[in-house]
Simulated assay, not measured.
Amino acid sequence: MTQFQFNLNIEDLKDCIMKSDIDAVVKASVVLVLNSVMEDERDKHLNARAYERSTDRRDYRNGYYERDLIMSIGRITLRVPRTRNGDFSPSVFERYARCDQALVLSMLEMVVNGVSTRKVKNIVQQLCGESFSKSLVSSLTEKLDPIVNKWANRPINTMYYPYIFADAMYIKVREHNRVVSKAVYIATAINEKNEREILGLKVDHSESYEAWQRFFQHLQSRGLQSPRLIISDAHKGLKKAIGTEFVGTTWQRCTVHFKRNIFNQLPKKDMDEVKAALKGIFNVVKIEDARKLKDEFMEKYEENPKLENAINTLEEGFEDAIQYLNEPTKYHHHIRSTNSLERLNQEVRRREKVIRIFPNTQSAFRLIGAVLMDIADEQAKKPSMIGKK
């Protein structure tokens, strides 16, 4: 693990703390840390520490320049190291600015388009200062949109994805002076290297067969091959689109959603034994054992009129919910539900709720795309834990 040596100005930090200005404390801490990170990056680029004599030196230090960085904590000014040849570029601005720029840009658009609330305007002023205009919106858009669009349309034909997860979440967007609900389609996958990967996203009018079909066709146009399993909830349009676009692919019904649907059909009281029996059906490693436990459950409770609806639900969706048991055991925990994708959606929600109502569809695509890019970057750095149980 890389270790950084921070030369912190303790007096400046203490002064901020003593004045009880928590915003200044946070900003000062972030500035000190990021400045030290950039200094360490320059040392590695030069292959020599400050005042170090080295025959392997690549270049020489050439002072610093100031540059602003907009983050969710506000605008901060960093002391950026330079080199004599000018070919050193710190990673801080690319790594930390992309998602925060998308967030700021979405709020700026609300202000410029005259649809912001006082709260949003105050947030924008804290993030960007008193002056913000259409020219600032345009400059940020020109920088950020090509990056997000390139990522969202990147080729995915160099890797096979045996397991794909699909889900949709709803957001609010202002369109033709009205606030409308739109669906955000997100697909993730486990690739042939057992790594999780975010495949793509699309913003469409509603969750329907046609919209899911367009989303899948978009993934296919980028090179996606038919997977072994697609894991999702039981939305009818989604199921139909899977059957249309991925011939030969098996649909795995999310077991978490499925069990929840069955439990909702049960009486409210004295159902602990029944629920335990239902959960046990899905806690096996062989598909034959699951079918055996399900048959035993039916024989035991089929005469109970209070459980008729729950039993009908179990009977109707059972086979679709146990298809993961046909796959290698090491994958069972990871492919029986859409929990991993729902955790991803929650992270998107955490940033999206700051906006509440997007000023337009492109703004929504930009912010959600930037959030997913940042998450994808973090995932790529972590070793795969899939199949290691």
Rank of each mutant, 00 (worst) to 15 (best):
M1L: 12
F6I: 15
L8N: 04
N9E: 14
I10D: 13
A24I: 01
V33A: 10
L34H: 13
R42I: 14
D59C: 04
G74W: 00
G74T: 01
P81S: 05
E94F: 10
R95G: 05
Q101R: 15
S106N: 13
M107W: 04
E109Q: 05
K121N: 13
Q126R: 14
S139A: 11
T141I: 09
I147H: 14
N153L: 07
N157M: 04
N157P: 03
M159K: 10
M159Y: 10
Y160K: 07
A168K: 02
M169R: 12
A183D: 04
I190G: 00
N194G: 11
E197G: 07
I198L: 11
Q225N: 06
A234P: 06
V247R: 06
G248I: 00
T249V: 07
C254G: 04
N261R: 01
N261Y: 03
I262F: 06
F263D: 02
N264A: 11
M271F: 14
E273T: 14
K279M: 10
F282G: 00
V284F: 13
E302A: 14
E302S: 12
E303N: 15
E303P: 06
A310R: 00
L314G: 02
L314D: 02
E319T: 04
E319M: 05
E342V: 11
E347W: 08
V348M: 08
K353M: 15
R356H: 05
F358I: 12
A364S: 10
I375C: 07
S384H: 07
K388T: 12
